[in-house]
Design a protein around this nucleic acid. Structure first.
Lengths: 293, 293
DNA sequence: ACCAGCTATAGAAGGTGTCTATATGATCAA
DNA sequence: TTGATCATATAGACACCTTCTATAGCTGGT
């Protein structure tokens, strides 16, 4: 197979109709171009150019070759443009999986900043449980996942993100509980609102109660953090939410935290990727912007 | 612009999913392939392959690049096939211009042989006067022309072909002239049939008469050699034709030559091409088969 | 734990692309 | 014609870069 590099010289020579001009365009000397063309011609056993005193003209065979090489050249040029686009985040896509509530409350601000800086990178955000996110990763459907630690999977590369703290919050209806320190047992006298099953936080808090010989049976089971907050505000019960996600409500005192006499374990956000699988330019740039451990 | 040769390595590596296999396919060593891929990756600033213990897998960016390079590779492969086709006369075309009667009576046998040997070369035969043929050549509409010498044009490359001899022939009606040697003057007593104006042979013979102070005014002016022969056979007059083209008729004695007391100048077939313009593979092969000087 | 198979790395050597210098040819103007 | 200009071709030298050998490192399977 002929040295592809020769086609580059051939193409430019044909386009410019001159060995010397092609040489300038390629930042090499005219004898080099002459040599390259000769190699092509000898390789095919055909003359490709007719040499005149004003430059060169494609022969019939040269025209045929040119029509093919032109296509190839176009594709390779496009390829280089596209690559630079991907490299400079002027294209491509960022596919992220977020588990539970992390999607909206944790990820969203970073995504907004990223999108503002790289508006041409398409962002795909998929939502799912931690195991689903892991599966998506392994199937190559997403570039990275944002889940709660711990995640134990030998195939995954885990970057530790910030710590988050879950807590119970209530609205004004239960104002009398503000300032008090409740026991787990006492808390059960109130209607409890939890995130739906299969969520990491749900497992964690249920486990805490079980460790104390108690059963945490929620009055409501909701599918979104927004609803948890809303229900608590309107006094339908006491919601178990991530403290960092209700900062605003705590500040404006539409919600207040209910202190317990046992500590609720913190959990950590983890950014997971496939081990040994190179990240896309977009993904690695995005990860750099997320505050880690 | 990136060295096109690297794309060849990239493409094969992607296709085979392995640096080592690509190395074998390219008859180089694995480290060379590794090096080439690294050059590409550094050139783009992007990782193109994910390395595993079983080989390599395209990254997202690699997939994008591959989709472009695949197209380019296809075109370049096609180009090489096509070139070999042209080189081996399994394709392409042969465009010939023949003046006057030379087309049918001189060229045809060679064209038949050529076509039998290279059935995939398309043959275009155009007919015209010598100046027209020359014009076609200069316009690039034909690859070579077959005309009567002399042709004087600085831009033309002329190969001298066989000598041909024109003569006057008649059919049985003028049988009494057989064996006689006529003067030009005496010949004018008979009805003369000539090829149409603007033909080389017409100029030649009219000139000969003029040199002897005579005017050659034909009874008939015909546009084809076949008609000249036919008219002579049926006794409508004495035709001026190329001796070589009536060999059959002379042999079977349906025509006989009329000898003159002055020699009619011979003329030579010339194969003309554009000077400095490389011939197509088909054209140069064809010319080799024509008997020259 | 070891072997097989893959890729990465380092350093050396050879080949090839590129250079400079010059030749050759065509065109054009005087 | 002659000389000037501009094009490509050729020759030979050099330097870079591709490719090589040798080896290390890693992974997965036996």
């Amino acid at each position: 197979m002929i040295n592809f590099e020769l086609y580059k010289v051939f193409y430019l020579t044909a386009q410019l109709g001159s060995l010397s001009k092609a040489a300038k365009a390629l930042y090499i000397t005219q004898p080099s171009v002459s040599h390259a063309i000769k190699q092509l011609e000898e390789g095919f056993g055909l003359e490709l150019f007719s040499r005149t005193s004003k430059g060169v003209v494609l022969t019939k065979e040269g025209q045929v070759l040119h029509s093919y090489v032109e296509q190839a050249f176009t594709f390779l040029s496009l390829a280089e443009d596209k690559m630079s686009e991907l490299k400079n985040l002027e294209g491509g896509e960022l596919r992220i999986g977020g588990s539970d509530s992390l999607c909206k409350h944790y990820l969203l601000p970073y995504l907004e900043v990223f999108h503002a800086q790289h508006p041409n990178v398409k962002i795909h955000l998929v939502h799912g449980t931690t195991p689903e996110i892991v599966t998506y990763l392994k199937e190559g459907k997403i570039d990275l996942g944002v889940v709660r630690m711990p995640v134990n999977d030998i195939q995954l590369e885990v970057r530790e993100g910030i710590l988050i703290q879950d807590c119970f919050v209530a609205g004004s209806k239960y104002r009398e509980l503000a300032g008090q320190i409740l026991s787990l047992e006492k808390l059960l006298d109130y209607p409890i609102i939890l995130f739906s099953r299969n969520s990491h936080s749900r497992y964690a808090i249920t486990g805490l109660f079980r460790d104390h010989g108690l059963v945490l049976a929620p009055e409501f089971e909701l599918g979104s953090v927004d609803l948890l907050i809303e229900f608590a505000k309107t006094g339908l019960g006491i919601s178990y939410v991530t403290k960092q996600f209700v900062t605003k409500e705590l500040e404006e005192e539409s919600l207040f935290e209910i202190k317990l006499d046992v500590p609720i374990p913190q959990s950590r956000v983890g950014i997971i990727t496939l081990k040994n699988m190179p990240l896309t330019s977009a993904a690695s740039t995005f990860i750099e912007r997320i505050p880690l451990n």
